[in-house]
């Protein structure tokens, strides 16, 4: 059984650096083999949850086309996005890949999908865990408004319980950043806040300032179903929602909370 580490968060961070398992910060962060294995372990657990919840796995390409992002209104939200190569972009969230796959489809029934992709954000804060390039696993659900809201609540309950079972000290907060930023950013943020469209699960790592967001639970209302023209065949207004996991952040939260040895042993226990 996993027990909580006896070292402080500072000591855990120092040990992680000394082991070359988490070196540098922001753009330059490099993860060692044990941290990468821990990232994969967290991902495998999330995929298990997703498959149990009836999700289909969607393979996605490394980059996403400009046309998809334009359709999603992406450049209205993130105008400074850097093109990777000839019309290919690394998006700030994995779920755009999913909407591209669902585009112009008629769904016989509500559905759940999961995919994982490398993402990029221009993080301004030089804080542990805020990587510019990172791996995001997402679960996307599409259905009626009530069904999507129920799905989100079930995922909140499932993931909070999972985090607590790993001894992470977490809190669920209304998110302060807008999922769809843009010209009316404050209005959108306030609307999002009033409607409770976005919650973040934050892990407390006291020595390093504000708790780090490791997952988010989002409702998009009809934003993406309209933009990508996917709908339920029965004519009910089609809503979507998603749950996102910043996998490197989860691994860091585990390593700092449990201590590196205990965190890495989670992977080893799985192999036995």
């Amino acid at each position: 059984m996993t027990t909580v580490k006896e070292m402080s968060t500072d000591e855990a961070m120092t040990q992680l650096s000394r082991l070359h398992e988490w070196t540098g910060s922001g753009r330059e962060t490099v993860l060692g083999p044990h941290m990468l294995a821990l990232v994969d372990w967290v991902d495998s657990k999330v995929v298990e949850f997703a498959l149990q919840a009836g999700a289909s796995e969607l393979p996605v390409p490394r980059l996403i086309d400009r046309s998809v992002l334009e359709r999603a209104g992406y450049f209205e939200s993130f105008p400074a996005t850097v093109e990777e190569s000839n019309g290919g972009f690394m998006p700030s969230a994995t779920c755009y890949h999913c909407y591209a796959k669902l585009a112009a489809t008629s769904l016989r029934e509500p559905g759940v999908w999961t995919c994982s992709a490398r993402c990029r954000r221009n993080e301004s804060q030089e804080e542990w865990g805020r990587l510019q390039t990172f791996t995001m696993r997402e679960i996307v659900f599409v259905g009626s408004a009530a069904w999507v809201r129920k799905q989100r609540q079930e995922w909140i309950d499932r993931i909070v319980a999972f985090a607590q079972s790993l001894h992470l000290v977490v809190q669920l907060d209304t998110a302060t950043d807008s999922f769809f930023a843009g010209g009316e950013a404050r209005g959108r943020k306030l609307l999002q806040q009033i409607k409770g469209l976005k919650f973040e699960l934050r892990a407390q790592m006291h020595a390093y300032g504000t708790p780090l967001a490791i997952s988010s639970f989002n409702l998009h209302e009809t934003f993406f179903s309209r933009r990508f023209n996917f709908q339920l065949a029965d004519g009910i207004e089609t809503h979507s929602g998603c749950v996102a996991f910043g996998l490197e952040r989860w691994a860091l939260a585990l390593a700092l909370t449990l201590g590196p040895d205990q965190a890495f042993s989670l992977v080893e226990q799985e192999k036995r």
Binding site: E184, R186, G187, R188, L190, L191, I194, K195
Partner: peptide
Amino acid sequence: LFEDGWIDSLKILKLI
């Protein structure tokens, strides 16, 4: 007021 799109992101700023 916040169901069925009565108040959007511009209107909420005016309302406040």
